[in-house]
Design a binder for these strands. Sequence first.
DNA 1: CTGGCCATCGCAATCGTTTGCGGTTAAATC
DNA 2: GATTTAACCGCAAACGATTGCGATGGCCAG
Lengths: 359, 359
Amino acid sequence: MRPNQPSLTPAGEVKRAQPPTLRDVAEAAGVHAATASRALNPSTRRLVSAETARRVIKAAKTLGYQPNPIARSLKTAKSSTVGLVIPDLTNPLFPPIVRGIEDVLEAEGFSAWIVNTDNDPERERVRIDSLRSRQVEGLIIATARVEHPFLEALHEQGVKMVLVNRRVENLEVPCVTADDATGIALAVRHLAELGHRRIAHLAGPHSTSTGVVRSRAFRHAIRDHGLEDDPSLIVECAHWNEADGAAAMRELLDRDDRFTAVVAGNDLIALGCYDVFAERGISCPDEMSVVGFNDMPFIDKLRPPLTTVAVPHHDIGAEAARMLLDCIEEPDRRPRSLLLPVTMVVRDSTTRPRPLPSA
Amino acid sequence: MRPNQPSLTPAGEVKRAQPPTLRDVAEAAGVHAATASRALNPSTRRLVSAETARRVIKAAKTLGYQPNPIARSLKTAKSSTVGLVIPDLTNPLFPPIVRGIEDVLEAEGFSAWIVNTDNDPERERVRIDSLRSRQVEGLIIATARVEHPFLEALHEQGVKMVLVNRRVENLEVPCVTADDATGIALAVRHLAELGHRRIAHLAGPHSTSTGVVRSRAFRHAIRDHGLEDDPSLIVECAHWNEADGAAAMRELLDRDDRFTAVVAGNDLIALGCYDVFAERGISCPDEMSVVGFNDMPFIDKLRPPLTTVAVPHHDIGAEAARMLLDCIEEPDRRPRSLLLPVTMVVRDSTTRPRPLPSA
DNA sequence: CTGGCCATCGCAATCGTTTGCGGTTAAATC
DNA sequence: GATTTAACCGCAAACGATTGCGATGGCCAG
């Protein structure tokens, strides 16, 4: 691919000229390539006279010169590139985060390689290795588990990274997440205010920090509101998806049907609940209230529209990217952690509990 | 970011060694860097003796050598990189396509830069320019419009590209799309078989090939089945989204409420219909049947679950990537076009028409 | 008038690979 | 045993940019 205009050779046939190089620009401006380089780079421009700088810049413009980022990277050992490690782009949670990331990256002249791990640790290792061999300057990781030796190893090796949505224990790296704890607190308060007293929780996997934070916050909130604090009302889903959400819901219903509301670990798990409701003819919200987490796109189109806690995905991505850029610029700054505020969005999947059957 | 192990300097403090270079490998194997290069590259390996090849490979392995793709790119003028131009990653249509693309790309050692244009031609120009300055070897384009001078210009300049989901008139470049025409035919047949005689079509924008192909196919199918062929039953949406779908639906209902079914240009437009049904208290499918197009993720979770025609998004992406790689390998092959088969998936948004009020 | 300083710019090395070319060696031919 | 031939490998020049260092020249101060 030749990013420049075709030109005519003397013989007349169309020939694609090579893109102009820095040398060409220098020659056109009557200076040495080194001078041209300095003139074009704002931070070194003070090393050349204003007059020659003007000439060089003009020449660059008329030639349509575009610096070759590959040559530049080779020399400077900077690739202006970061890696973005997510489980699966197909999960609607991630596209908004990705866009947030790319919005700030590209404003700084960076860009991102995206890799999907499908939650497979081995795939993750391979993908990250390939990212590193492509000389990325840092990593944004959305696949962190509570115990994650591989990430620890990377950190030991000085790989710059920031975590999104997840934390890992004993790992001193910056991370940006939603304020899960207050999100869950809001959800429980909403249900309590509606009059629910016996509330279940379909927790996310405890291998992820989000899973443990949310389920801990759930227990706290239950106690704070003086609701029924029954450990058997909490069941852990194996993964953050519909199938495992549905499985957990079935398990719960099979052993106890006296709860009137459920706080799902996230929207997908809530979707699993919907499936079970359809299976068993349970009407939501009349017989069972559900609140999700994340406010995924299109989750408001469900029947009933899902009450959930909205997470600023775009901001999460943007802040993560900014943080990574900060780390790259000043390598030994203390890692900060960012907790982004969430909001409760009440829709139609929650309502007052129906009075228990007066049996 | 240093992709290798930290090591100890004589002084004892931790120092991150430089990643091993080809020179290091060569030295370790007791050969020249050129020889090492040939030994490591399968296609030039026959130029060195089996024995030295073995030594070099072994040395590379023990040193953990990873070729520097930047240096290689500089020398070979190949970046092993393609650009992927989509309107908006947040549209659930695209993530599966992207994954399909990346699956085949990465098997060939390529990777993709993704850019979002938000359907803004100017943004598109800027993004594509930036892609080209990053030396991509080709482009996969999902934002094509029927008239698209910019793409024509790129093609003139010899930029390799393949179109997904869209075609552009008078542009001889390969493209891979779903078989829109038979998809629409299937939808219409489905409705006809249910007994619908007066069917509306909310067409996608005619600035996109998909919009014109689908609406033309709709008219043909209507005639083929001998249904009511009323041009006023076709209205064009300004964009492929819910808002414009809803607007078109309102317009349609305001001037004619005697149709009993609607073929939406795609699932998002169908979603817009759902919104209008809710506004106006129209019950779907009892009073109005709807069929969408694409079978977006989660569209089966709607109430009612949407009848739609399923498109093999992952395959579309995969085939497009393969095609682009083919173009890159043998530049002057004739552009082929691929039409991928679609399937009808019947859910609950379509049923027999209710007998007209016996007024 | 001379010495020193500063601004400006060119020289050349460098980043890590790839590759055309030429040189060395050993095997094959007569 | 001399010569052709092939196999193997090293030399060095790229690719296109950046950058330390040194050269040049002008200017000012002593």
